[in-house]
Structure formats: C-alpha cells, structure tokens
Design a protein around this nucleic acid. Sequence first.
DNA 1: GGTGGATGTTGAAGCGCTTCAAAGGCGCAC
DNA 2: GTGCGCCTTTGAAGCGCTTCAACATCCACC
Lengths: 334, 334
Amino acid sequence: MADVARTAGVSVGTVSHVLNHPDRVREATRLRVLGAIDQLGFVRNSNASFLAAGENRTIGLIVIDIGNSLFVDIARGAQHRVGHETMSLLLANSDNDDALQDRHLDFFNSARLAGVLLAPMRDPHLALDRARRLGTAVVVLNYRSQHDDHCSVLIDNEEAGYLAGRHLIELGRRRLAFVGGRDELQPVHDRRTGVRRAVAESPGTTLVELATENLEAPDGDQAGEQIADQPAATRPDGVIAVTDLLGMAIIQAIGRHGLSVPGDVAVMGCDYNSNAWGGTIPLTSVRMRGQDMGRAGVDLLLEELSAGDDHEHRDVVLRPSLVARESTVGRSGT
Amino acid sequence: MADVARTAGVSVGTVSHVLNHPDRVREATRLRVLGAIDQLGFVRNSNASFLAAGENRTIGLIVIDIGNSLFVDIARGAQHRVGHETMSLLLANSDNDDALQDRHLDFFNSARLAGVLLAPMRDPHLALDRARRLGTAVVVLNYRSQHDDHCSVLIDNEEAGYLAGRHLIELGRRRLAFVGGRDELQPVHDRRTGVRRAVAESPGTTLVELATENLEAPDGDQAGEQIADQPAATRPDGVIAVTDLLGMAIIQAIGRHGLSVPGDVAVMGCDYNSNAWGGTIPLTSVRMRGQDMGRAGVDLLLEELSAGDDHEHRDVVLRPSLVARESTVGRSGT
DNA sequence: GGTGGATGTTGAAGCGCTTCAAAGGCGCAC
DNA sequence: GTGCGCCTTTGAAGCGCTTCAACATCCACC
C-alpha cells in the first residue's frame, strides 16, 4: 500500500480513502491512485484491513453434510442473498462430525466474522455463548433449540408429516404406514408426530409405524419387504417414508413382490432430494425449501448486525410444501 | 491478550509463546497462562495473528458446483487430508458463475491464504498470475490447462471413455452408441475420444454418436427415444451416456418402448453420481474418484508450500475405475 | 564463590491497514 | 484584504498479534 501511495504521489491515508470512502477524494486523485493500484497489481490485505477497521464483512456458513441436498440448497440460498451485499460467504462442512463442527466454529470465531449461520448437529448452546462474547452474531438453521438466545430458521417438520398424511388420506388411502427410525433426530420425530396428527384427525384411518435402524437404502428395502409380505386385507395402502431415499428403496422392494405403485400401495418420501428424480416411478415428496432457509438466515443475520443491542431474537418458521408425483397419484399427475 | 497476560502475571510475549511455541515456556507458566485464557474466554484473533506472522495456515477450495457429487467428494477428500494438519479448509461455491468464481478467488487472495485449490470453469491463467504474485500457491483441480505454471490434479477422462467402451465390447456388444453433447466441455470431449479409441481397436464394432443439446434428463429421454425407435437389426446394443443422469433418462425411455436393459440394450453412464443409486436398474458407471482428487490436491499444495522456490510444478493424473452393475451385466453382478 | 551455558521471560518493534485530528488549499462574503 | 467554512490531503496512532534481541534466572561444575 505504501508502494501504491508512492507511485501515485499521495499518502497512504489517501490510498485507504480511495478504497473505503471514495467520495472523500477528489476525482483526479482517485483515478491516479486506481491507476497505481492497477499497475502494481496491489490487492489489499484483508487481515490487516479487518484488524484495523475492527469489523469484518464476511459471513460463515457451517452445514452438517454438504452431500445432503438440503444443505446444498441452503448454501445456494445464502450465497444468493449475500451476493448482493458487499459481503462474502464462507462455507464449512462438518461432515457429520461433531468435533469438526466445533473446529469450524472456532475458526470462524477467531477470524472475528461478522456473523455465522450454523446448522448444528446438537444443541449448540455453549459454542454460541462463546461466539457471542466475541461479538459474532449467530443464526441457527434447521435446529429447534431449547434456548432462545439466538435467531433461528426452522422448517416445520411436523407440518411436513401432516401434509404427507393428509395427502394420502385425501387420495382415499386408509391404512397408512410410517417408515422411519432414529426418532432422536428432530426431523424424524416431528414428521412422525405430524403423520399421527393427520391420522388422528381422520376417523377410519389407521397408522402402523415401522421403525428402522437407520435411514439408508437397506433399511427401506427391509421395510418394503415387511409391507409387501402382508396379506392384502391388512397391508398398508399408503406408505410415508421419512426420507426420499427410504421411499425409493421401499418402492423397489414392493415392486419386486409384484405389487404396483401407486395402485396397490402409494408411497411417498420426504425431503425432495435430487436422488428422487432418477427413479423409474417419480416419488411424491415434501419439499423442504432449503434455499429459502439460506436466504432467511442471511436476512436474520443482517438484521441482527444492523440492529445492534436492541435486537430481539426471533424464529422464522418455513412451511414445507407437497410435491405430488407418480408414486402416489399415478401417471396422470397433480 | 493483554488481559490474559495481566491475569496470568506474565508479559504478552509469553502468552504468545504459550500459543505458538509451548516448548519454550516453563510448564508452570504455561498452565497459568492456559488457565487465564480459559477463565477469560480468550480466543486469539487470527487476523492479527496472520498479519503479524506473515503466514496463513488456511487453504481455500473453490468448486464449480456444490450440487455436483464430484465436487462434494473433492471437498470431502480435501477436508480429510487437511484435517490432520493444523490447517483449515474453507469452501467456496462458484455455482457455475464465472464472476462468482473470480470473486471467491479475489477474496482468498486478499486473505493471503497459504494456498488455494481451484476447480475452474475456464482457463484460469490470468487469475492465477495474480495469486502467485501475492505468494499464494494454487493447485488446479479437474481442468487440463494450456499452461504448466501450476500443479494440477486431473482425472483421465479419455481413459474413462475407453474403459466404458471396452466394458461393453467385452460383454459382446458390437453396435455401440455414445450419447453426449456440449463437446466444448473437456470431460465430454475426452470421454468421447476414449470411446472412439476402444471401438477403433476392436474390429467388427461400430460407433454411433448422438449429440445432445445439453446434459439434462430431457436430453437423455430424447436420445433414448431415438435409440428405441430403430429396427432391432441396426439398433445399438450398447449405449454409453456421458453422464449418469443422461444414462438413467435413456434407460427410462428405452424401458417405455418395451425393450429390456441390459437384454436388448446395455446402458451405462459415467461419473458415478449418487443419483444413480436410486434407479430401479442400477446403472453401470465409471467412478471418478473425487475424494482422491481432493486429497491429491492438498498433498500437492503442501508439497509446494514446503518446497519453496525450488518447487517443480507437476500434474497428478488419476485413473478412473469401472463399476459394473445391472444396467450392463444384468442381475448376476460382477 | 565464580563462571558459563541452558532455560525462561520480557518488551518493543513492526505486520499492513484504517481513522482521526490537524493542516493545507480554496473560494466566497464581507 | 481578511476571515470563515468547506473540501482534500496528510501523517501518526493504534488494531492485536508475533518475534527477536536482550535480559533474568537457574544450575552444574570447577
């Protein structure tokens, strides 16, 4: 920067002003400085800049698993929203690893970012305390926490389950099955609750819950076998899988038994993963609106940053929406 | 940091030593300082740290599209490799946007990162010049550049095409078809070349090339129709789609026409995307080894960083491997 | 008891920038 | 001609840390 100043024949203060407050500098000087910057290939050192200015224009996003399309969507949405500001978005992938998540958070903390969007794996209460003490705003994504000392963006998973249940019931299905395991995961638990509510509301419908060990394809396969093995009279005619992957595996297992989807059994998933596009029978699912989530997260963060001390934490709850396709409504669509 | 020093009753220099050269500090002092750090919740400001030390322990990774499983794998591999060092990995998603890619690169440049892994969309020659002048090492991923002033990690796409061709020929297929468009994309071009070589090597085999406009599902659907419409005598009996998505769409289209896969037509993809898992007929594909790519990239970068001036740029070329599944070999497997 | 070397600790200089008080330059009104 | 206020520019202080030369301490050994 001193070089630039010398080349342009001004002081370093002026160079800094050209970069940060161009309006305070005379047009001619500004151009001269810009010329020198260009000529010398100068790139301002943001470490020094942030240190001196005491404020950082960067937002960090920590996601649980970058292989999960929900988080990809969140990243896209956040990037998009940030793009219009003079800010940057940094991505960090926890890769389902608690320790790694904490390391990312520490790293962002020590970089004194303006704010962090965190999609945590467990209640991040303690970690957040630390960030806040350093003046970093944190917005929690996709996690319903016990504490209300931060803003959150949530998806109403209970509603997702409810929508799924209603959908099948409205299609005339009466013997529903919910397939999903690991109830300690919030989304699984909430979706299950929603399905129960839909069934409870509709006299004449029944619900069977099949608990799987995990949420991988083999679990769905197994569940599908179980369903297909039952006599037609008691066999579920509408199946809600807690994830799309599970749903697709169920369809395959059922298909192997000569049953038709959705003729004999309507099957639907949840999450609207891109995986679901490839199947022979397009899977009905509930779209989780990840992009909106990313956008809303950035908005909350910017709001918190500009509000200062009189900021009131709040939650934004996004409503999922149902995407009906062949696996429940057949070829015709809608 | 001054607070910590005061609390622990030492000088700031000592606190710094505890953090950076613990061996130079007496055990008792170290513990006292650590205690103070803990008590005060001190987190060192990495901006100041990097500025003073003049070196940054962070690596940036810029990928074209975080929704593409190849890049997800690259990120995982890189993260994994970096994880064991006292380094951090920052992710930036270009989202298929040239301007965004440049902005990410500028950002990393101004942060004076130790190094950058770049999966570029076009020849990044100019951008790299700038980074290098600032002392940032750059390794290019997944792009065969005209220039040799940097290290690269490449996947041999020509080999991928060749492997695919050989696979079908060895299965007894004689009338091959290659489906893929946008030949200006390096991977598409190279895979096509590889398939041609495999066919040229095998007397008695023929190759039809179907150019699609894009690489989306509808393109595959159209190509599948074209293939299925031909009389059995001239119809291709082995199809290589340049991507998995294309391959799955082709299978569906062919299936609609009552032809069997792989009985009448063997179909395979390329890329080994997770999308391929969901299909009713598991797709044979060529695995692109993204994780290895990420790992190799980090290794090259570390090598370059430690070698200093006498570093010789070099390329690492990864060999893809074929994953045979039902869409070519039928139920039995292998 | 004195000496030398190893081991610990200190404090100030400096990393590259921003910012602020202060000074310089200029035009305008009186 | 003088004084005032505005627009520009300057230069030094300081952001929070690392590092290095210098200094303090300790111990072994003669």
